[in-house]
Nucleic acid binder design. Sequence first.
DNA 1: CTCGTAGTACGGTTTTCGTCGAAATACTGG
DNA 2: CCAGTATTTCGACGAAAACCGTACTACGAG
Lengths: 102, 102
Amino acid sequence: MKAVLPHPARDEMRIEAVLHALADPVRLRIVRALAECAEGISCGLLDLGVTASTLTHHVRTLREAGVVHVTPRGTSRISTLRREDLDALYPGLLDGVLAAPR
Amino acid sequence: MKAVLPHPARDEMRIEAVLHALADPVRLRIVRALAECAEGISCGLLDLGVTASTLTHHVRTLREAGVVHVTPRGTSRISTLRREDLDALYPGLLDGVLAAPR
DNA sequence: CTCGTAGTACGGTTTTCGTCGAAATACTGG
DNA sequence: CCAGTATTTCGACGAAAACCGTACTACGAG
């Protein structure tokens, strides 16, 4: 388990990667959950119907795209939405996605 | 060649499909081109670096997701962005995507 | 009607993705 | 230190996606 995880800087984020990260149902549920929880969440607490290793994969996809920030807290990892970066780069995108009918 | 092509109604569109359609570089270039051309375009005129059959595949992906409307005109097919539907369902999404740095 | 152009359909190959289980790692509490 | 919990890593698998070439269809020009 690496202590600190790599995150793309704002100017390294690519729109294709962000859209791809958001295009998966499981990841979208994570993003929706994070959107309601500014303090962040340990994604393992969400009931997403996938195994822990699959969840790791999804969170990494979101992190590497720049959608979420992940930071270790004790034995777990807290994810937060990178709202400011997303809004700065793609104003309206996140709100539009969150406005989508379930 | 089918005369009329199936398009999803507004309430049949799924955010995951829209995001997936937008997440590909070639398709994103198509969308950007269409965004600057309200009258629509024959996508075959764009120089996208893929073969005609691959282009057909991409345009179909966009159409089936509800991102574009395709209508036959003579021997070619005119694609237009479904801006109103996208803005109604996901307000800000399209503008956010188009605002992304190239 | 015939030819040329635009696009589609089909079939195939290669790559990417989502998923899992098993084994490994990191931290906490006792 | 030890046991337990949270998470990651690795390797595998099947499904989906991107891409191409060839053959085919539709339409317009002449």
